[in-house]
Write a protein that binds this DNA or RNA. Structure first.
Lengths: 119, 119
DNA sequence: ACATTCCTAACTAATATAGTATACATAATA
DNA sequence: TATTATGTATACTATATTAGTTAGGAATGT
């Protein structure tokens, strides 16, 4: 039940952005340095956050990134889902069809409850 | 954040035991068949549940397994911890020393809250 | 003695994750 | 328009984890 470093790093990066809210744009390079994440890896995992509308970016010289919404409007379960897929502890919670036991499976309710608690 | 099949199978097995509470002993073989888990794999994962006192076993002919406590006294977080280790989404929640950032890490509180919700 | 059942350890294969390498695209500005 | 500073995208590799098998051992009842 561990969360991936991908999601951990992503959330750290967002938090870094939130804390530096005053500046217009933040450089990936600086986040990488402050958060001790390799720049190529950070670039790698920030991409989906940009395409999904969590982060705004401008390229080129004097470019950088910033949050698209106010920090309090960003739900972390959304971020985790973007970075590592559904937070559901088992797949059948999101899609009962993938398991022939779903209909009569008594444990499934449990996992569903767990997903809600995590969210 | 997926749960391992190890833990899923283990919980299914325990539930099977709970539902067949009336019988004295249940055969691993039968659980394996009902739950569609390979017998060697089930034997494999039931072992820690025996040594940790969740399940009682007797070997040999007319042997079998049964729950040591009443079903309602078995907490599933305990079972998950036995089968796949701590339920904490990051290791630093259980042991801050493993990460030099723990002291000033703002995300750590989040993971701690998550662990509590999951439990 | 033998059949039946749980127990243990070692191994293998498959999958997922972390991280790097390489090349490209865009924007500011000299 | 060339240069520089950024972000964007794809493909690859190494490592770790997980799932599952194999093979045999130990205890118990008949």
């Amino acid at each position: 039940m561990k969360i991936s470093t991908r999601a951990r790093y992503g959330i750290r990066a967002l938090l870094d952005l939130a804390l530096n809210d005053d500046k217009e744009r933040i450089l990936l390079k600086d986040i990488a340095q402050r958060q001790e994440i390799s720049l190529p890896y950070l670039e790698h995992l920030i991409t989906p956050l940009i395409t999904k509308g969590i982060v705004r970016s401008t390229r080129g010289s004097r470019g950088g990134i910033s949050l698209r919404r106010r920090p309090e409007e960003i739900r972390l379960n959304e971020v985790v889902e973007i970075l590592e897929g559904s937070i559901a502890p088992v797949e059948c919670v999101d899609d009962p069809k993938i398991c022939p036991r779903s209909e009569f499976c008594v444990t499934r309710d449990l996992w569903d409850e767990m997903k809600r608690a995590m969210n």
